[in-house]
Amino acid sequence: MPCDITRVPGTRGMLTLSGRTSVRAGSPQTQGSGSGVSMHPLSRRAVLSAGVALAVAACSPSADAPPAPEQSTPSESPPDPDLGLRGDVAAQEWALVALYDSALATPGTLDPSLLALMRDQHREHAAALGSAEPPAGAPTSATGSSSTAPAPGGDVRARLIESEQQAAGARTDACGAARDPDLVRLLALIASSEASHAESLRGTA
């Protein structure tokens, strides 16, 4: 198994799995130097690091690799069997960007910085799918059709939540159809991001 569950220094980790029975939380004796186990002045950071380290123990196979959302590779190699899927999902991402632009243009109670953050994340999704710019003819905030313009007030939130949930479901379906494992991974992360957007919007009620 490639996972090094006892990895200690060198990674960001400071979490060690003990070979013995339970280790007292925070016990420093298992660590090399510089592990940052001390909690006192940097407690918040240390806890964050602990979370990272605990997750390192989860040893995601790609934990050592950068996020690597898929880079678009201009095709000079074999035809991409997922080409149509990528294009469809990217177009849907740009529609979500337009929806957030409309929401941002509508005075309301939603936190504009949160809306902008999530809009920009949809842009990142599209870019990772190989679409750095909105497709020609796609709705923008200026030209969005009335069907994409959210109604004012609380309906904006409801509309965004519904759209994010639908998007997460569509990405989940797309995962089932994708052939390239890297695309499957990417779509799973996008589905997760969009499900978490819906949760964030619910939390701002």
């Binding site: 799995l17 939380a25 016990s27 806890v47």
Partner: peptide, 23 residues
């Protein structure tokens, strides 16, 4: 199942939430 984990102690609700969010 691993025998245990060596993690810093959690001190208070904020650190608890941060740990869970990260995990």
């Amino acid at each position: 199942a691993p025998a245990g984990y060596d993690v810093p102690p959690v001190e208070g609700p904020e650190q608890a939430r941060l740990l869970l969010a990260q995990v």
